[in-house]
Simulated scan of single mutants.
Amino acid sequence: MKIQSARFGIIEINDQSIISFDGGLPGLEGLEKYAIIRCDQTDPIQWLQSVDNQDVSIPIINPFLLKPDYEIEIDDSELDLIQTHSEEDLVVLCIMVIPDDLTKMTINLMAPLLVNIRKMIGAQIMMDYITLPISEPAFDALIEYYKKEGEVAADAGSVEKSK
């Protein structure tokens, strides 16, 4: 199927890759169908594109890439929402905020998205029983990720001092 995206133009989506969020996401109730868009220019940041609203594309990332020691605590009722208790079926993603000043980008570690990749069902959960930041700075961790992947120079993101 083809969908229109304000960010990406017309994109081809495999029907089997559409993720259903029952009731939508907080603040986006009613928008229940999304596709994950991979973009070479922003990798490893991906985009959760609404199938129903071309203007809604949310930056997301695998939190373990930026914070390898990230841990989530979810209970059975939250896993019931996505109809799996199998780790093999589970993908964890976190929403990012990317302002014009990229050095101020953040990642929401408190409310991850859980996706059952076998049934393509997702839910955002609020882990309010542990202390994690909603707005964890992400720029430095992303630069470190790029350095490890060999995609940026060691001084990327630094400010050149005038003489």
Rank of each mutant, 00 (worst) to 15 (best):
D76E: 15
K33I: 01
F21A: 04
K161S: 11
I61W: 03
A6P: 00
G122S: 01
L48K: 05
I11N: 01
V97H: 09
M127I: 05
V152Y: 09
G150D: 06
E87W: 10
D69N: 15
G23W: 06
G150R: 09
Y70W: 04
V159N: 02
A141M: 10
N53S: 12
M110S: 13
P63H: 02
A6Q: 12
I72H: 06
F64R: 06
A154H: 14
L90V: 07
E144S: 12
A153L: 14
R7K: 15
L142C: 07
D89G: 00
I18V: 15
I37W: 02
K104M: 10
Q54H: 13
E12W: 02
Q49S: 09
A123H: 08
K148M: 08
V92R: 03
P44I: 07
G23D: 09
R7G: 06
E78I: 08
D15M: 02
D76G: 10
P26K: 08
I130G: 04
A141E: 12
C94Y: 00
M105T: 05
G122C: 01
I107C: 03
M1K: 10
I36D: 08
S20W: 05
L81S: 11
S86R: 14
S77H: 14
E149H: 02
Q83Y: 07
Y145M: 08
D80R: 11
Q49G: 06
A123C: 11
I98F: 06
I13N: 07
Q124D: 05
S86T: 11
L132D: 00
I3V: 12
V51W: 00
G27N: 12
K33T: 03
Q41G: 02
I11W: 02
I72R: 02
